[in-house]
Amino acid sequence: MLGYILRRILAVIPVMLLVAVFVFLLLRLTPGDPAAIIAGDMATPAQLERIREAMGLNQPLHIQFVTWLGRLMQGDLGVSLISNTPVSAMIADRMGPTFAIAILTILMSVAMAVPMGVLAAWKHRSGADYAVMTFSVLGFSVPVFVIGYLFILIFSLKLGWFPVQGYTPVGSGLGAFLSNAFLPALTLSTIYIALIARMTRANMLEVLGEDYIRTARAKGAPERTVLFRHALKNAAVPILTVIGSGFALLIGGVVVTETVFNIPGIGRLTVDAILARDYPVIQAMILLTSFLYVLVNLLIDLSYSFFDPRIRY
């Protein structure tokens, strides 16, 4: 068991290293002078030189990489070209709202999607099944910002149930937090729910066709027992996997949702960085979210053995 955990952790290192290489090369291999790309067309030679200096672009590529990686290991993500503050400090500053909303989203999504998927699979080809599938395909098809604006239009502007935009930290009271965070989380949830419900349904359908489900029924087990005791635990691993890989969707969604709801999180930070061509911030965000993605999926990998005793080695 310990060996398994260790091997999984070790296997993650090359992936993280490759991510770092990709991100590093992204700027350096772009055709043209990286400094000019970052500074924009109107930059003076002095500005260009300053950027080259700041990012170490004058050195050979491998030296650049080693220096860059070394700094990265120490948590140095570079300095913003616009505000001249360390990127890590900027991100730390903005992390709170994003994490709060992301966690709320995951909780809401799993709580709704898994029962939906189970129901759809159990009542295969029924009205409930079609309703879940319709919701799911809609969730994949309507852009997250359209959903966001639609929710604002209906729940805030027409019904007045929630404030239109803005953010209140959890520290200021759960009610205040929720009144601001609920709509963004619901918006973010739609695609996540669509994904998880679809995967749950597909895997439950597959599991429900297995021999051991027939055995359970032959034992005289009622449907509730068959579904939750026998089937769902067997379907758990692929469902967990999709929750993990859907994490990438969530990150993309956060960037958009924070823009729509005007939330001062790291998504908003990223969008501002794009508009200002603040490349160090964009690069740091890519690195950070990728590492987060890898870590989340590592944790999910490790949790498999909890659901499936066959995964121990």
């Binding site: 297995e210 021999d211 051991y212 027939r214 055995t215 359970a216 005791r229 026998h230 635990k233 067997n234 659901f307 499936d308 005793p309 066959r310």
Partner: peptide, 12 residues
């Protein structure tokens, strides 16, 4: 049943 390998629930 025929297939003892698949007739038992693998996670229980």
């Amino acid at each position: 049943f025929q297939e003892p390998m698949t007739a038992l629930n693998p996670v229980l």
